[in-house]
Every structure is written in structure tokens, then in C-alpha cells.
Design a protein around this nucleic acid. Structure first.
Length: 305
RNA sequence: GCCUCUGUAGCUCAGCUGGUAGAGCAGGGGACUGAAAAUCCCCGUGUCGGUGGUUCGACUCCGCCCGGAGGCA
């Protein structure tokens, strides 16, 4: 019998955090955050990281565990989170993986083990100087399979695939197969949250941004930027952070920056819906039709918990 | 009251000398294996303010009406 894991995914602003805590309380579990931005230390308001009060005494993992200057990746996430899952299981408790970063969640839950890889920074920098179309043609020659699944305009992904072949001598396609385990090591129960009313979700995204501003997002960003090296860090690709950094640079007025954050949040929610929607084994619940307790009860009724 | 400019997709606007309209943004759909809150792909029929006219044919020309902006009184 494989160890069980409960996962909570779905678009932002649908109440994943609260449901995670409720599940943990009900099932003697601990929450493992699955969020590419919450991992960074000091990025609290802008990532809507749960406060001590919201955690309600439930242990939370993978929040604020990396310095924001460090460029974190899926591989790093899995390397850190997998042992945490093992530890929670070892203590006889249930891990509840909660978050909106679909890629991280899928990789962690499928038990993917990333192969060792040397630093590709230099190769990557060189490739970025070159013409995207040319790079894609080069990729087509070296790893036709990867090229066929990556649009030539998607320079970032074309380069990633290229740097893999160039630095490892193995195609990304081949590595991907080697990295993927035949079967997930966990018995996963995934539930995704959404709002049936799209307009309502967009409104909630807007409210959430206003709320973050009220809670001091600007101050948080200012504080982080006292370290100028963070300006270009991966952490500053986070929604809210990059826009306010632009405002602090004088590139745009504050109200415009806030507008941009709202728009970015809504687009992000849409991408998340697409990502999580791919997993046909997930159970979807609309938060505007059911509260947390009702969802858990429903799950119980289906003997899923 | 008179004069000038203006009224085109949810928003900002293109549409040359007449042949029934197109961009950006927003929005929708999708992809996604080491930056993923990132990166990228696909999707634009709207009484062209209204109404009369000129014309084979008007968003494009003319008249009037309605709504904006500015100027002169």
C-alpha cells in the first residue's frame, strides 16, 4: 500500500489555503505548500502565504525556505519537498500538498527524480544572444522530438531543450523519460477548487490585490529591494513584486501598477485552470457552491478519505 | 448662439483619392519536465452615433439630428 497524499490545487483566490488547513485538522495532516513564490523568504503578503493565525496550529512546510536571491526550480522543490513528505509519513501523519504551481505539484506527486545537472548558466546566456528561429532549427537537428513539441517562438523553452543536449549530450526527450518513474510512489487524492462564476473569480482576484496593498505589499517590496541584487532574481518575477518594483523605479504610476497586478493575477488564474484541468483524476469543487466542510463531507461520502 | 474638431470591437485607436472594417490591450481557448506567479500558441461581425440624400456601391462625400472636446462671443 502506497503512502497517501492529499493535494489541493486550482486557480488562485479560490480558498486553497483554508481548505488545506481544514483537511489537515480533520485528517491529522500537515500542509506542504506547493507554490513557486511562497518558497522565498520574506515574500509573504504578495504570495498570500498563510499567517500564523490562518495556519491554526497546523505545521506548514516549504514556505519561506529559500533566500529570494537564489534561483529556485522544480528540481530544487522536489528535492526539498519529497523528503518532507517522507518525514510526515514516517511520523504517521498525512501530507496535504496545497498550492497553485501545477508543474511543481505534478512533478512532486509523480515522484519524479531529477537527474544531476551541471550549471547551464553560461551556455544559456550565450544562446539568448542568438536568433530564436535559428535556435529552433538547431534544436530540430539535435532533438527533433523536443523541437516538434516546442513552438519556435518560445525561445525560453527552445533554449532549455538546447542547453540540455549541449551540456549533457543527451536529448531532453531521453532525459525526461529517464527521470519519470513508471508509477507514482504515492496514493494521490487530488481536489481542485474553482468558482463556478467566472466573473466572481475575477472580482476576487481584484479584491485580493487591494487587500495585499492594504496589508503592506508595497512596504514588503521596498524592504526586499534594499538588496538591489533581488531586482533581477527569479523571485521578482512574482506577480505584485515585478509591478511594484517598476513603480518604485518610476516606470509607472502606482494606480497603474496595481491595475497591472490585478490583470496579471486574473490571467494567472486562467492559466492555472488550464493546467489543473488537464488532470482528469482530480475532483473539482466550486467554492461558490460548497464550503470547505461540505467538500470534505462529500469526499467522505465517496469514501475517498 | 456661431466656428472648429470628434463619435469605428469591452477599452485606446487605424482605416489613403468611395468597393460593407483592422491593430494593441482586455477577454476566451490551449501548450507546458530544471526561470513555471515564467514562457509561448490560437481566437476579432462590430446596427462603423442616428437619420435622410448623392452614387451601381458610403465607415469613407453632402444635409439634418443626437452625444463629446475645444475656440469665439
Amino acid at each position: 500500500m502506497k503512502p497517501r497524499v492529499i493535494a489541493v490545487g486550482g486557480p488562485t483566490a479560490t480558498g486553497k489555503t483554508a481548505l488545506g488547513v481544514l483537511l489537515a485538522k480533520t485528517l491529522a495532516g500537515e500542509v506542504v505548500s506547493c507554490d513557486s513564490m511562497q518558497v522565498y523568504e520574506g515574500m509573504i503578503v504578495g504570495t498570500a502565504a498563510p499567517t500564523a493565525e490562518e495556519m491554526e496550529g497546523i505545521p506548514h512546510h516549504m514556505i519561506g525556505v529559500v533566500d529570494p536571491a537564489v534561483s529556485f526550480s522544480v528540481a530544487d522543490y522536489c528535492a526539498m519537498a519529497a523528503p518532507i513528505l517522507a518525514d510526515i509519513h514516517a511520523r504517521g501523519r498525512l501530507p496535504i500538498v496545497v498550492g497553485g504551481t501545477g508543474l511543481y505539484m505534478d512533478c512532486l506527486l509523480s515522484g519524479m527524480t531529477f537527474l544531476e545537472q551541471e550549471d547551464t548558466g553560461e551556455v544559456r546566456r550565450q544562446l539568448w544572444e542568438q536568433d530564436g528561429e535559428e535556435l529552433w532549427k538547431r534544436l530540430a537537428a539535435l532533438d527533433p522530438q523536443a523541437a516538434s513539441s516546442i513552438h519556435p517562438a518560445n525561445k525560453k523553452r527552445v533554449i532549455r531543450a538546447l542547453e540540455v543536449v549541449l551540456t549533457t549530450g543527451e536529448t531532453m526527450t531521453a532525459r525526461a523519460t529517464r527521470q519519470l518513474t513508471a508509477e507514482s510512489p504515492y496514493e494521490v487524492m487530488k481536489l481542485c477548487l474553482d468558482l463556478a462564476d467566472r466573473e466572481a473569480l475575477r472580482a476576487r482576484c481584484d479584491q485580493r490585490v487591494d487587500e495585499m496593498m492594504r496589508r503592506g505589499l508595497l512596504e514588503e517590496v521596498e524592504g526586499l529591494l534594499r538588496r538591489p541584487e533581488l531586482r533581477g532574481a527569479t523571485a521578482f518575477q512574482g506577480i505584485g513584486y515585478k509591478e511594484l518594483a517598476a513603480f518604485l523605479d518610476g516606470a509607472l504610476p502606482l494606480d497603474r501598477a496595481v491595475e497591472d497586478i490585478k490583470t496579471a493575477t486574473k490571467k494567472y488564474a486562467k492559466r492555472q485552470r488550464t493546467w489543473f484541468g488537464r488532470d482528469k483524476t482530480a475532483f473539482w469543487y466550486c467554492r461558490d457552491r460548497m464550503d470547505g466542510q461540505a467538500i470534505i463531507d462529500d469526499f467522505r461520502q465517496h469514501n475517498l478519505l
